[in-house]
Design a protein around this nucleic acid. Structure first.
Lengths: 229, 229
DNA sequence: AGGTTTTGTGACACATTCGTGACTGTCTGT
DNA sequence: ACAGACAGTCACGAATGTGTCACAAAACCT
């Protein structure tokens, strides 16, 4: 239950629905909003793995949303794919300058967009494509389902593995117990919040090696975060 | 909680009710008044984060309210969004000169107004969008729940953290003890006013580093403020 | 200066939150 | 059916934070 999360900012309801459907088919967890301002909030709250951003939207313009995403610490490195009207060369240039990673010109086939998104996802977020993520002295290989720390191989249970993976995809960020349940267990799970504590403990115990400090930080009355040590 | 506070000055009851409802939906704490004079009082008392101000209202005119808000020390930099009748170009110009931050022309869709308000709110309170806020030598990262001063990491209790966050979102501004209780503890809390003093002390002690001066200013018989040193 | 109001501070009892070990139930493969 | 791994829950103690008070110190006002 660790689908890549995608935030779709599109104010044409028909197009939004179509794309949402197709992306879900591809295994993405999709959040849709027609509004630029809401997009910024959602991006900060939900920590999506990728943003698909229409240029012409209500509220704050696509350009501005893009710029602000880049400025926000938590969202600075989230890849952005822009959707531009045909021939708006100017937008493309300004978009790429502002930090968009790719653009698709309307009209486009959903298949094309999905392909581009897939490509970027693979390029930018190696863990999702099965390559290796490293945070501090930890290293996680999603395909091989393997974790190493200072060269030592570490074995984790499935839940601990997903938990660590989620942390490593957002290093330094504090997640509430509820957010962790959503991200690691799935959003409809009805699990006791305190259960997260137990798995955190198991994760801590699991990644313990000789004289290394615990990279999992407890933030009292807020949640947990993984520190890059 | 820490909901952004909004003061709505609008004398058309139907519109006022609609907007109040929509803003509440968006998570704002809304206060409504149809009257310009009362608006000035409320602005001083409740320290809203933003004022939505209709141009044609009872009592003191919108223009005058705007001017007085700017003149009032506590309310000088509260962002103001004006609502003007269509085509009253003159009003717009005078409004912006007087210090309004944005204007919306009637008739408008609630969505548009909400989007504008959201944009301004995010500009004013960047921590809401997950950005790092800096004031003087202090730096606060809401996402990572981390505070630094001159490079040194600082650990704060939950309440001190929220208190500092609130101060850093409104640097230089003086808050009464009651306002701080509303903003940091939540508006229904029934806490002793003097308790704020104690937390101010704990915050001061917490952010103390070697030879740096105390950025928390006591304003006798008024409250506290965070100074940008 | 003397009296009054307001703020700083240390102490303390109480609450909340977190870590931890133990327990049960489920599922899998043999 | 059995063993073993794993997940979820609970209860208890430890650690930490919270709100209030009483008194000291400081600021203010005649």
């Amino acid at each position: 239950m660790n689908a890549p999360r995608l935030l779709l900012v599109e104010d044409d309801p028909a197009l939004a629905e179509l794309l949402e459907f197709r992306f879900r088919q591809q295994g993405y967890a999709v959040t849709v909003t027609p509004d630029g301002d809401e997009a910024l909030l959602l991006a900060a709250e939900e920590a999506p793995d990728l943003v698909v951003l229409d240029w012409m939207i209500e509220g704050t313009s696509g350009l501005e949303v893009c710029r602000r995403l880049r400025k926000g610490k938590a969202t600075a490195h989230v890849p952005i794919v822009m959707l531009t009207a045909r021939g708006a060369e100017d937008d493309k240039i300004r978009g790429l300058e502002t930090g968009a990673d790719d653009y698709v010109t309307k009209p486009f086939s959903p298949r094309e967009l999905i392909a581009r998104v897939g490509a970027i996802m693979r390029r930018i977020r190696p863990a999702l494509a099965g390559e290796v993520v490293e945070v501090g002295d930890l290293s996680l290989d999603a395909t091989a389902h393997k974790v190493t720390r200072r060269g030592q191989t570490i074995v984790l249970g499935p839940t601990e593995f997903r938990l660590l993976k989620h942390f490593m995809e957002h290093p330094g960020r504090v997640f509430s117990r509820g957010q962790l349940l959503d991200a690691v267990w799935g959003s409809e799970s009805e699990i006791e919040l305190r259960t997260v504590d137990v798995h955190i403990r198991r994760l801590r115990k699991g990644i313990e090696v000789d004289g290394a400090t615990d990279p999992v930080r407890t933030v009292r009355s807020a949640g947990y975060a993984l520190e890059a040590v």
